[in-house]
């Protein structure tokens, strides 16, 4: 065991902290109608999209945990960026063994299209592949409205790379993100892999990493306010009723982050635990992000209910991302089933 950050991983965090720098201000500006900020997306797309993809496959090397650290750090400040969803689509392609043309990836946004209306998170899917053509509809696709390339989950553990025929922007609860409904009308499947699971595991754990950042950011946001806001002549953070809520949120956040780090490692090292570890990470990270943002809002009191305040931005990101690639309920059940099959195979 040597479960500590290595030198290059600390460097990733440092760089990411610099890029995340005024993320929250950017977020607020975006809310008041400013155009989508170019920074840090521009730098991220130029320098970091090949992270955790082997050099032989055209990437820049590094491990999945490096990318998880980068995504978590950006998310602590809700830094508006399309990079996270772009890179998650690349990782899904990479994990599934689909070839990635980085020249194409440099040119425009990629997206990962999995969910379908009123269908369990990972199928059965109605989207069909026949004669190498894809027909059907995918919903809740992050930045699908801007995407040139979609990685599409299909039946029988298949996943394909194709261009969507049409996209309709959905009304997203998260004002800092865009979700779209994508239609494929006989779109040509440029590549098809029959290892969708390999790609979806990587994508799911990265969503968990993002939720860990959201959870930590919410705790930090609530704590900062609790130090500065005074009532009855004292900072409210000195009251246990306030302080303990934030401590509970911190414990939940730490729980989720441990599970996420382990799941990244388990995937990278081909550990047989990987599937289980990803269920645990996604379930707890969703729970922690929602719980922590709710606590941050509560600690803010009435101000927390206003549009200009920060807690609702965390809460909306948490609630939305918790529903991407399998809700908490679904991941917990999978994990429960995995435990029972382990126990029955032993006895």
């Amino acid at each position: 065991m040597k479960a500590i950050l290595e030198e290059e991983q600390r460097l990733v965090v440092e760089v990411a902290e610099r890029m995340a720098g005024n993320g929250l201000q950017n977020a607020q500006r975006l809310l008041s109608g400013a155009p989508w900020p170019e920074y840090p997306d521009h730098d991220l797309m130029a320098n970091w999209q090949g992270l955790a993809i082997g050099e032989a496959d055209g990437g820049s090397g590094g491990r999945l945990v490096d990318l998880a650290l980068l995504i978590r750090t950006l998310s602590i400040r809700l830094t508006p960026c399309r990079y996270i969803d772009h890179v998650i689509a690349l990782q899904a392609a990479f994990g599934a063994g689909l070839p990635i043309d980085f020249k194409v990836a440099d040119e425009g946004q990629w997206c990962l299209a999995v969910a379908e209306p009123r269908t369990p998170p990972f199928g059965p899917f109605a989207c069909r592949l026949s004669n190498n053509r894809i027909d059907g509809t995918k919903t809740g696709v992050p930045f699908g409205n801007r995407a040139e390339i979609a990685i599409i989950a299909l039946e029988d553990n298949r996943i394909a790379l194709a261009k969507p025929s049409e996209s309709i922007l959905s009304d997203s609860a998260d004002p800092l993100a865009e979700y779209a409904c994508l239609t494929f009308n006989g779109s040509a499947a440029e590549h098809v892999s029959d290892n969708a699971n390999g790609g979806l595991l990587r994508a799911t754990v990265l969503i968990a990493a993002e939720l860990c950042g959201v959870a930590q950011g919410a705790v930090d946001n609530g704590s900062a306010y609790a130090k500065e806001r005074a009532q009855f002549g004292q900072p409210i953070g000195s009251y246990q009723g306030v302080a303990h809520q934030l401590a509970e949120a911190q414990v939940a956040t730490e729980t989720a982050w441990s599970l996420t780090l382990y799941a990244c490692w388990a995937i990278d090292s081909g550990n047989s635990d990987a599937q289980k570890a990803v269920h645990a990470a996604k379930a707890k990270a969703s729970e922690a992000a929602v719980f922590s943002s709710e606590r941050a809002l509560q600690v803010h009191g009435g101000i927390g209910m206003t549009w200009e305040s920060t807690p609702h931005l965390y809460l909306k990101r948490a609630i939305t991302r918790a529903a991407v690639l399998g809700g908490t309920h679904w991941h917990r059940q999978q994990l429960g089933s995995a435990l029972l099959s382990k126990i029955s195979s032993v006895s």
């Binding site: 729980t255 989720a256 917990r332 059940q333 999978q334 994990l335 029972l340």
Partner: peptide, 14 residues
């Protein structure tokens, strides 16, 4: 029951 077991499993692993 499965959901509760899953919750516990994640907590014990953490």
């Amino acid at each position: 029951v499965l959901e509760r077991l899953g919750e516990f499993e994640a907590e014990v692993e953490a």
